[in-house]
Amino acid sequence: TRVETATETAWISLVTALHLVLGLSAVLGLL
């Protein structure tokens, strides 16, 4: 259904953003 697709997209966006933040923090930590 469309609701499931929207929820899945939201989760993917959330996980991606989380990985970006963690990756950025790791890079800044190494610097």
Rank of each mutant, 00 (worst) to 15 (best):
T1I: 03
T1L: 10
T1K: 01
T1A: 05
T1V: 09
R2F: 03
R2H: 00
R2L: 13
V3E: 06
V3P: 07
V3W: 08
V3A: 12
V3I: 07
V3L: 10
E4N: 12
E4C: 14
E4H: 01
E4W: 09
T5A: 04
T5G: 10
T5C: 13
T5L: 03
A6Y: 04
A6Q: 14
A6E: 06
A6I: 04
A6S: 06
T7A: 15
T7H: 02
T7V: 12
E8Q: 01
E8S: 03
E8G: 09
E8N: 03
T9M: 00
T9N: 15
T9Q: 13
T9K: 02
T9F: 13
A10G: 08
A10C: 03
A10F: 12
A10Y: 12
W11P: 13
W11S: 13
W11T: 08
W11E: 14
I12S: 09
I12E: 03
I12L: 12
I12H: 14
S13M: 15
L14I: 11
L14H: 14
L14C: 02
L14E: 02
L14M: 03
V15M: 06
V15H: 04
V15R: 10
T16M: 04
T16V: 14
T16Q: 12
A17I: 07
A17P: 00
A17Q: 00
L18V: 14
L18K: 14
L18A: 02
H19R: 10
H19S: 14
H19I: 04
H19Q: 06
L20P: 04
L20E: 10
L20W: 12
V21F: 14
V21P: 07
V21W: 05
L22Q: 06
L22I: 06
L22C: 15
L22Y: 07
L22M: 08
L22W: 14
G23W: 05
G23A: 06
G23N: 14
L24Q: 08
L24I: 09
L24S: 05
L24D: 06
L24A: 05
L24K: 15
L24F: 01
S25T: 11
S25D: 15
S25N: 15
S25G: 09
A26W: 00
A26L: 04
V27H: 10
L28S: 02
L28G: 02
L28A: 02
L28Y: 12
L28Q: 13
L28F: 06
L28K: 03
G29W: 03
L30E: 13
L30W: 00
L30C: 15
L31C: 15
L31H: 02
L31P: 05
L31D: 01
